[in-house]
Computed example of a mutant assay.
Amino acid sequence: MTNPTEIIPGVLFYSFLSKMRKEKVGFLEHSTLVLQVSGLFTLATATETISMTGGNMLLIRKNQLGEITKIPIDGGDYQTIVILLKEDLLRKIALEEQIETVQKYTGAPNILIPENDFLHGFFQSVIPYVKHPEAKITDALGMLKVKEVVKILLHTMPQLKEFLFDFSETHKMDLEKFMLSNYHFNMPVEKFAQLTGRSLAGFKRDFQKAFGMAPRQWLQEKRLAEARHLIENKHKKPSAIYLDLGFESLSHFSHSFKKKFGVAPTELPVNTLL
């Protein structure tokens, strides 16, 4: 998430804002537990969209691509507490608690957690740290808070053991299908390789076989082709689509578009027949 308050370094974060914000999150590297304090939180991936409001909790699976939209509602503010469940911390917990998993996790990538007194009490215990971010919380205390919430999650939903403690490598997935669904996320080629279960060299080799060109070239052309379609046929404004198509700035998008098509995106004729 963009510019949250870091309460426990690398572990616990608090996000507050008073107006809508859409964030091209891209690569969600770590499993993450989100408590929605107030406002509307929406996570959109290539396969699903999940929304939640105040009092709801969501467990997000590691190694995903997604976009988060934060919206204050009913005249209030938007507030979220986020805990990153990093693999190194989960490995330590698995060793200390002698937790073993016998199979690879194949369930839902994102799970809404039913509200219960134990989790509610845990997040109430976090509030003092949120209210006093100037206090320097030690790494040891951060580890204790992660251990506590993991144990509560397992007590609440024992089936989450495979979700949390699957340390197997990402399986080698259908590269072509994956890229056609996720090309609009702005991230390094190395991350695309990781998400498809390949080394960088293997990813480039398989990509060339699937698409007949290098990944960066294909990504640029795919995004620009989609931009032209949206402007010509869907009457979208360049300023409304460039971020959603993986471009970092409007000027970069406009320059690339003109270089590809010989005309600025704002000068493109609109198809009025559709």
Rank of each mutant, 00 (worst) to 15 (best):
I68E: 05
A94S: 15
L28T: 03
T106K: 14
G54M: 13
D77E: 12
K70N: 11
D88N: 15
S18K: 10
G107N: 08
I99R: 11
E115T: 12
E97V: 06
V37S: 13
T53E: 14
I113A: 04
F27S: 02
Q98V: 10
E100P: 00
T80P: 00
S31L: 01
V37T: 09
K62I: 01
K104W: 00
E87G: 06
L28C: 07
L35C: 08
M20T: 12
I111G: 10
R91W: 12
N56Y: 06
F16D: 05
L84T: 05
I113E: 04
G54A: 09
E67V: 12
K86M: 05
Q103L: 09
V37Q: 14
G107H: 08
A44H: 04
T69G: 03
T45H: 09
L84G: 04
L84M: 04
R61N: 14
G55K: 04
I50N: 05
Q36K: 11
Q79C: 12
I60M: 03
K86Y: 01
P72N: 07
A44F: 01
K86C: 04
V25R: 13
E48L: 07
K70V: 00
A44Y: 00
K92C: 02
I71E: 15
L89Q: 14
F41W: 15
G107D: 07
L40N: 10
L65V: 12
P114S: 06
H30Y: 15
P109I: 07
N63S: 14
I113K: 05
T80V: 12
M57W: 01
L95Y: 09
K24H: 13
T101W: 01
E96A: 14
E96C: 01
H30S: 15
I73L: 08
V34T: 11
T101M: 03
